[in-house]
Design a protein around this nucleic acid. Sequence first.
DNA 1: TCAAAAATGAGTTGCGTACCTCAAAAATCG
DNA 2: CGATTTTTGAGGTACGCAACTCATTTTTGA
Lengths: 342, 342
Amino acid sequence: MNAPLTLRDIARQAGVSLATVDRVLHNRPGVRPDTVRRVKDAMARSAFQPHAAASELARARSRRFAFVMPLGGNPFMQQIQAHLGELANWMAARRLTADVVTTDVFDPAVLAGKLEDLVGRVDGVAVVALDHPSVRAAINDLVESGAKVVTLVSDVPSSRRHHYVGIDNIAAGRTAGALVGRFAGGKTGRVAIMAGSQGLRDHAERIFGFSQVLAAEFRQLEVLPVAEGHDADDRSEHLMRKLLAEHHDIIGLYNVGAGTAGVAKALTESGRAGDIVFVGHDVTALTRKLLLSGVMHAAISQNPGHEARSAVRVLLALARGEPILSEQEAIRIDIVMRDNLP
Amino acid sequence: MNAPLTLRDIARQAGVSLATVDRVLHNRPGVRPDTVRRVKDAMARSAFQPHAAASELARARSRRFAFVMPLGGNPFMQQIQAHLGELANWMAARRLTADVVTTDVFDPAVLAGKLEDLVGRVDGVAVVALDHPSVRAAINDLVESGAKVVTLVSDVPSSRRHHYVGIDNIAAGRTAGALVGRFAGGKTGRVAIMAGSQGLRDHAERIFGFSQVLAAEFRQLEVLPVAEGHDADDRSEHLMRKLLAEHHDIIGLYNVGAGTAGVAKALTESGRAGDIVFVGHDVTALTRKLLLSGVMHAAISQNPGHEARSAVRVLLALARGEPILSEQEAIRIDIVMRDNLP
DNA sequence: TCAAAAATGAGTTGCGTACCTCAAAAATCG
DNA sequence: CGATTTTTGAGGTACGCAACTCATTTTTGA
């Protein structure tokens, strides 16, 4: 009844020596196919799993990961870094280190340079990536060098990165669209979109999804041309003010990226806060306040703690050659309203 | 710069022997307070963390957990069990086993009996608990016996359980209320509530939160008396049919528990599906279909995979005396619409 | 059939910790 | 001060696996 517990038991069951079991387990050469089968059968028969701790201890490798993140005050990115900090003990107990490298991710050459610097120096890299040929090439160089690479928040699907930790931004935009549409409650009017830049892949995808849903399901809502606030508060505020002044029939507002403080300020000072359905992204101190005060109606969010942990777990699993629990690592699109604020 | 890596290094730094470091690390008696301090200082100074794998290997204990779950076809509970099954390899590699014990959780005596049976036989228990004195006593007996206990989905706050894996059901109800209220778009009318039973703690809490929000923020919506479908499809269908026939001004519907198939059937056959805002719970094959077809507008959900993994992780951490990553283990209230279906 | 190649067995060492014993040293007390 | 108790040191074993060496057996091919 009780399954054999160690490699020794498997060896006995298969009628081979420990050495041969080891060879099979690690795909080392020099074992006849027939013998391989016998060993694998024995393992399968007793549902054998190597003892994870023993295996890790025997390897006794420490691993070095690097997180390449944007410079500047983007609250969401800072949250990810904060959560990374909370993982320090967990990682230390597993002899892992994670260095954060900040860089201007909007400049492909700079970003690619930072990535190239890491070639041969780390076991794994998580990078908030710009989708650009030189970045793609740098990622591929890293992969070539044996490092494991995950993209974080923003993907570079055409690269050879091993994994993407982040949400489907088209679906996120669609979700925002559905919320604005439904919350508008059948009324007719215009909807404003404030984005950082349509050149950013994630922003562009969100806008695409948003517009898609409004066009398909909420014909009574007309989408205004996208305003680009560059994720900056002042610029966003200015543009928002202008939009509100020009259009008195705005009943919905989708803030695609950051710059939320500016948007909210303009909206509040117009006196139309609460009446205009306002949907934005990410749960920060600010959006939390706006949700509670009723200025903002919903925030689309990806959990920064989950993303930090997932990136580390995935890099570790990749480095160890362990399987990835895909369901665990999938980042969900969270809809956050006042009543389910985390 | 590089931190010492092993207990040996700590011993050297503190000027004591390995044995003394071991005594301090495990709070064993027979060490002078002064010596304890020196050792702890040395650990702190170099931010020492014992190697997790080595520690686990040296203990070399296998642990037995039990999951006490409801009998019957509740899809959500089945999902949790399925996800538990997916963890089998992960657990096996850590020499953990999780036995699922099904029982009639609606009968306090039966449930308490099952729990008492486990006293002294397991290292940890996760239980979908009924909040009843005899169940509480059984939980306390388990804790007394040294087992770690987490409540799952439904809590027993007054017991000595170590942890609760599940959502805040009042907040979940409030969230449902906000969604129904907003989706109704300012229209006036009645809102129906279908629950399993108001005797179930989680259902009662959800109804409380739901009613709270509607009363406070959506005065134009009048809540009808709660119908109790006992989480059964046929009974729910019958009650729903009756409600729809009696009230032609129903514009919102909140399905608090299971029995969704019956509710949806009655709603669809009334020809009013899509017009009546329908919010329910949990993402199952059925609710997924209903969301996609537009019959259901939103589902409040707690991630069953997350709950299964969290229960196991928390039990393991408790058993090992490791800290719990509270942010990781918090179960979020997910709002799921057609566009962010996982 | 015999030499060469391939496959396998047997064994060792080390990973870092937990837990144990026993002796020696230091502190405490009357 | 000596006797007793407390504290500390030294050392060993075990945990299960990875990674290696080297000898031996088996298979293969000419």
